[in-house]
């Protein structure tokens, strides 16, 4: 594992925070999560970027008072990075648990964000842990860990590129409880924007309307879609004194396209919402 990766794993080794982070539910996902947790089933969250997946898992971990181990997967991430490895220091080598192993040992929630990015070999360690055995064999140390009831695996990915499930054995695949996230409806999204930034209702409404107009351009004109995250950024800029038009340009329009003509068109949409 690279230094950076170790760092990330350590940094996100959060223990049950006393404060539950704000989360605005879309539907009954909170109950579904609790159900999966109680039944010791792994959970799969699909949804576009910035729609609240990470926030949801943080919220649930805090709510269930479990430590959360988050791993942002990338194409260099191997099974070893999840499970752990031997490291060297002055006195020799020693074993260092990866975030997955730590979550199993401590009965926490392990959240693998963007799981499809990870190397294929990660599936091998996930299989015995997600089927009814719930075990994690540590080949290197010869240990086999039995996951406690409090352990839960949550994975997320952005569908559209690849399917995560296809790479899984049916026995594993069928155990996952799946949730599909989409963007919140307007009233809910306004709530999020207000809660996150303290912006006034009128501006929040305008921003959300703008976002939904921009979302209509998905596929046809834009590859990325305006996420709640970007809306929150724009609101934060406005709250900090930026003119709405400029805030939208910086946080939304420029984030969505590089093409000048498209930028001009998106600015027209901004004007339609905010005036000139």
């Amino acid at each position: 594992m690279t230094k950076a990766a170790i760092h990330i794993a350590a940094a996100t080794d959060q223990h049950a925070a006393s404060e539950v982070p704000f989360y605005q539910p879309h539907g009954d996902e909170v109950e579904l999560f609790e159900h999966a947790y109680n039944k010791q089933l792994p959970l799969l969250i699909k949804g576009p970027t910035g729609c609240g997946k990470t926030r949801f898992v943080m919220h649930m971990a805090a709510r269930l008072k479990r430590p959360l181990y988050t791993v942002s997967c990338h194409d260099d991430l191997t099974a070893t990075d999840l499970v752990g490895r031997h490291l060297v220091n002055d006195s020799g080598t020693y074993w260092n648990d990866g975030p997955l192993t730590r979550a199993v040992r401590n009965g926490g929630i392990c959240y693998l964000d963007e799981i499809v990015e990870a190397r294929k070999d990660t599936a091998v360690v996930l299989h015995p842990l997600t089927d009814d055995r719930r075990i994690l064999p540590l080949e290197r140390t010869g240990e086999t860990l039995q996951a406690p009831v409090q352990f839960m695996l949550v994975v997320s990915y952005n569908p559209g590129y690849q399917s995560f499930l296809k790479g899984m054995k049916p026995s594993t695949r069928q155990r996952f409880v799946s949730l599909r996230f989409n963007f919140l409806d307007a009233a809910q999204e306004q709530q999020v924007v207000i809660a996150e930034t303290g912006i006034d209702l009128v501006t929040a409404k305008q921003l959300v309307k703008l976002a939904s107009a921009l979302r209509a351009l998905k596929q046809h004109d834009l590859e990325e879609v305006a996420s709640t995250r970007l809306v929150v950024y724009a609101a934060a800029l406005i709250k900090n004194g930026f003119a709405p038009i400029e805030a939208c340009r910086a946080a939304l329009v420029e984030a969505l396209t590089d093409d000048e003509e498209v930028t001009a068109a998106l600015m027209e949409v901004v004007y339609a919402c905010f005036g000139e």
Partner: peptide
């Protein structure tokens, strides 16, 4: 034509 079509679609026009 390009920006106007984008505006049309963004405001809810038929894709």
């Amino acid at each position: 034509v390009k920006p106007a079509s984008i505006l049309f679609r963004a405001l809810g026009g038929d894709q």
